[in-house]
Design a protein around this nucleic acid. Structure first.
Lengths: 136, 136
DNA sequence: TCTTGACTTAAAGTTAACGTTAAGGTTTAC
DNA sequence: GTAAACCTTAACGTTAACTTTAAGTCAAGA
């Protein structure tokens, strides 16, 4: 089964020009073409795209994804190297998550603090309102 | 206690030109100056910077941080609005974390897959080696 | 006194990752 | 068969977040 660029665009939520851009940047080489030069994506291409998105959305730069793809094209001799790359990246993602969780705590504390402040503020307004009403 | 731009740079790991840039962009207004125009950061400025870094490192754009800062400058009437902003942002951070965790699983699966493939590859090489050794 | 080095500003440059436009060829629906 | 909706490439534009450069001020040490 083959897919047009539009179909792939809908599946991956990447716009057609982004798919072309990725191809141009060496992230997805050897996409098949029809006689008239129109891209025909295979299931394998879709799987590649899925991994590419995974790496990209976890912060890997396109440059480095290209390096990974180039290694893949060189065959099984690069399996170990690719594995190392992924292990390093995994640690980076874990660090990202840990960092975000720490910041999440901080945001949470701020929310609590602001909520308290807001209640105090409402109380103050209420008191002033009561006093000014009493002094009528 | 006051700090020079260099001291703040060391404390926050933000380079001096970045601190000036943030100030110019309205993220840290009203930093005190010496008679000759040199910045003197207060403890309060440092606390502000800490929150700014928290928001920035969790993906909030500088533009939006500026909006948050501008609201803060308007006083207690904006407490509710600021609180809402943080609650929305909190959800975004939670989504980020959830997304990353999903991707982390995928990376992990790939690592497992590659490790397996690598072992198979070594076995193959070993077999070929053994055969060619046997046929010597 | 002079020069070294940290500070100041304004403005231009850089980078990544797209996004847009122009100019044209192809396919499909009516 | 023709118009709309696709597809193609090349090249230039945009945005965010810095980063660098140029040109100048100021205080301290040899």
């Amino acid at each position: 089964m083959n897919y047009t660029i539009k179909q792939v665009s809908e599946k991956t939520h990447l716009k057609p020009h982004v798919l072309r851009y990725y191809e141009r940047e060496g992230l997805l080489p050897f996409v098949d073409r029809s006689e008239s030069g129109i891209r025909r994506y295979s299931e394998e291409d879709l799987e590649w795209l899925s991994l590419i998105c995974c790496l990209k959305n976890t912060g890997m730069a396109i440059k480095q994804i290209r390096e990974f793809v180039e290694l893949s094209l060189q065959g099984k001799e690069t399996l170990k190297e690719r594995c190392s790359m992924l292990i390093v990246h995994k640690k980076e993602v874990e660090n990202q998550i840990a960092g975000l969780q720490k910041y999440l705590c901080k945001v949470d504390h701020k929310i609590t603090y602001f909520t308290d402040q807001y209640e105090k503020y409402l109380d103050e307004k209420c008191e002033i309102g009561a006093v000014s009403h009493g002094s009528d």
